[in-house]
Nucleic acid binder design. Structure first.
Lengths: 273, 273
DNA sequence: TCTTCGGTCCGAGATATGTGAACGGTGACG
DNA sequence: CGTCACCGTTCACATATCTCGGACCGAAGA
């Protein structure tokens, strides 16, 4: 019996579902990530950052530049707009975006608050589209540093999605990404989370009461296909002072659910099935 | 004597300005490109597409998936939203976007027409931000298939940029990307282009009269830094019926130039220099 | 002028990559 | 119900390719 097969370098705990992967490409991915984190980097800087030899760092940067993923500005390498172009392509390809956008626009107009459409990828929430309503306060909230990828467990949209994902999928996500706290109200305990998700399923939509940002509330409802699979969610968020009483507990939920229905109908009609 | 070193695969004509590049990474880049072109691909399909062995195609797809650049949906691989996330990051990092957006919004509001902010990368125009004004016709124009990367020579914004790039840079661009025609009015001759660019410099802004889309006109003005380098451009476009007479020849140019000035001032103020 | 630091380039050796062939599962079709 | 065809997956091997250290070069600063 061949025990040798177990000698692998995988940082203990890694499930060994390992189709061989290309090391060079993974390094390149690390380079992109590093460049993104640091905004702009030079050759030596990157080498230190990733523990590569200068020559390796150099060759990687040059290759990524040649392929259009990085550009040099003032001698330093930066993320190229190619990512933006491809990203926009991916977004516009998504039916959720295409059919969701009009509803988001309308909801934002009506409520005057931040309105989002979110989907899930690799256990994170992707903020596919977001509109800042007229009444929305604080330009700096999400305007300078917009989070286009975020944890799912501390947003209304995220929880709305989690509530309708298979339980084992949620467990996987919790395990791999954890439940980091953003405020004192953030759910950080798996049991609490599952209870919350159950409540959401009973209610049909999710609340967020200061779990991401102190003083901010949100309501999010899942968008599902006929098979019951969740594709994403629609949510409205605003200051607690605005999200109160009937508006928070009746009007908005009703309005959001209606918008979701419209989106779901559009999705089904156009899903040539 | 090892002559073998000269056997290189570079498709004859390739200038051999060869900082060695990573073949594997370039293949991965090709894979991404292929997936984007085809929307979604399977293993065998990709192998045929790029003349790879099935196993190689497989390994590349898996690697890109593991690194988050591709996702599997219904068994086929697609572009992941990671591109969108990184792309949004790049966009928001750009001062041109940050300081240009408010002006674009305002201009679109005032004119009711499509308003764009464009920058250049690798000889192409990148549509950093675009708003569809209230009066803008035809939802399908650029709504289903938004071009976020386009040639520079047949748009007002593009020509405004070209006019203020160094001449040899423009020649490079023309040489590598050509001057493909979009309509009968598209400038397809380098000499004509350079004459046009000269006219733009004298005028201070660029016109587009049906060179991209029949019946569509546009005005674009360059956004420059104190050193005189062009960073991008601002443009308004609409149907010829709207872009006429004084509006086309005086009011709009004046209005756009004013907006450009505002942007330039913001840029300079915040360029901690 | 000398030093430092960053980017560029090279040869060599280790190893990660590309490949073809084989396997297993699934759906189509007779 | 059995067979075929197709697709994704895996393996072991030969070799092309990556990584690395070290050397070079030009610019900036002391």
């Amino acid at each position: 019996m061949w025990v040798e097969a177990f000698e692998w370098n995988m940082t203990a705990g890694d499930t060994d579902d390992s189709p061989r992967t290309l090391k060079t490409v993974s390094v390149a991915a690390d380079v992109v990530e590093a460049v993104r984190e640091h905004g702009s980097v030079g050759v030596t800087e990157l080498a230190d950052l990733l523990d590569l030899s200068k020559s390796t760092a150099y060759i990687h940067l040059k290759t990524l530049e040649k392929n259009g993923f990085l550009v040099q500005r003032d001698g330093e390498y930066e993320i190229a707009f190619k990512f933006f172009v491809i990203g926009e392509y991916a977004r516009h390809r998504s039916p959720l975006y295409r059919y969701g956008k009009p509803e988001v626009d309308e909801l934002a107009e009506e409520t005057g608050q931040y309105t989002h459409i979110v989907t899930e990828e690799n256990g994170f929430g992707i903020n596919l589209y977001q509109v800042k309503g007229e009444t929305s306060i604080s330009d700096d909230y999400q305007s300078e540093k917009p989070q286009h990828r975020d944890h799912l467990h501390y947003t209304a949209s995220g929880k709305a999605i989690l509530a309708y994902l298979p339980r084992d999928r949620v467990e996987e996500i919790v395990e791999s990404h954890g439940l980091p706290a953003r405020t004192d109200n953030t759910i950080t305990n798996p049991d609490d989370l599952f209870a919350e998700l159950e409540a959401i399923r009973e209610r049909g939509y999710a609340y967020n009461d200061g779990e991401e940002i102190e003083g901010f509330r949100a309501i999010g409802a899942p968008i599902r296909n006929p098979k019951g699979e969740v594709l994403g969610s629609l949510s409205v968020s605003g200051p607690a002072s605005f999200m109160r009483d009937e508006r928070f507990h009746e009007d908005l939920p009703e309005r959001i659910t209606r918008a979701v229905n419209v989106i779901e109908v559009s999705l089904n009609m156009n899903s040539h099935a």
